[in-house]
């Protein structure tokens, strides 16, 4: 052991050496380790910059208007107005930057439209759905419906063209003999602009009572005779009938 400060106790000298070495190591570490490694805030700021610099693939709903104004305007007025061009044509940012170099995909197959329009019981009621096997099989959809302004090419005659699910349900129910128009007055215009012009719907209990009331004596409805009868005063309390019976498939079993 070195014998420098004579008076200092041996033990204190050793402690001092340990202390000096420790501070030296810490100080060197503090200076040598770069700030980004020590501060998470610096790391985060850098990561945000990296995140923001990532390339975009989708150009956005309005990017196509400039060059494809006609299609853009057409789509805006039709049923596909909420669809972005890139919902169907895929990411097209590179195409907007240099339209001649890359071209977006054109989804012309039936299987594409069917991803949204095939019948699926989980889809919201009222969303236009078709049975892909039954709906004009093998012909391309775009042959009859313009994808940028889709609508039925001709005005359909039957209600079942658009209300297929209801028609199919009714066809196997007790109300199979009743025409849709027995209960709904549908103006012709409803078949052309269905959301603009709505048919009527039955409003009260008495409507069903025309055929089902116990004391129907004189009625113009031919079918009333074979309809099972109920006591209108007692049956179903205050509720309208279709709060318990679905009118397109009136079942009495649970």
């Amino acid at each position: 052991m070195v014998k420098f400060p004579e008076k200092m106790p041996d033990s204190l000298a050793r402690l001092l050496v340990v202390f000096v070495v420790l501070t030296a190591v810490l100080a060197i570490a503090w200076v040598m380790i770069p700030t980004p490694m020590k501060s998470v805030h610096v790391q985060w700021d850098n990561a945000i910059l990296r995140e923001k610099a990532k390339p975009m693939r989708y150009a956005g709903a309005h990017a196509c208007e400039e060059c494809h104004g006609e299609i853009y305007g057409k789509k805006k007025a039709g049923y596909h107005r909420d669809l972005s061009c890139e919902t169907c044509h895929g990411p097209a940012k590179t195409h907007t930057e240099d339209p001649d170099k890359t071209k977006p995909a054109i989804p012309a197959t039936r299987s594409f439209c069917v991803q949204c329009h095939a019948y699926n019981p989980s889809r919201p009621r009222g969303f236009p759905q078709i049975n892909p096997q039954g709906h004009n099989p093998l012909k391309p959809c775009a042959g009859c419906h313009n994808p940028h302004d889709p609508k039925p090419p001709t005005t359909p005659k039957e209600c079942s063209a658009c209300h297929g699910e209801i028609a199919r349900t009714k066809a196997v129910s007790h109300h199979v003999q009743l025409e849709c128009t027995t209960c709904h007055q549908a103006p012709q215009q409803h078949k052309i602009t269905p959301r603009g012009v709505k048919p009527t719907k039955p409003q009260n209990r008495e409507f069903c009572g025309k055929c089902h009331a116990k004391d129907t004596r004189e009625t113009r409805e031919k079918l009333a005779k074979s309809a099972p009868k109920i006591d209108m005063a007692e049956h179903g309390e205050k509720y309208v009938c279709w709060q318990c019976h679905y009118p397109h498939s009136p079942e009495v079993e649970n």
């Binding site: 945000i48 995140e51 923001k52 989708y58 956005g60 909420d82 890139e86 990411p91």
Partner: peptide
């Protein structure tokens, strides 16, 4: 994050048809 920080919508919102 790279889209919203330049005022674009997230890709999923962009393509949602409904």
């Amino acid at each position: 994050y790279h889209r919203i920080s330049v005022g674009q919508l997230p890709a999923c919102v962009e393509v949602c048809p409904t």
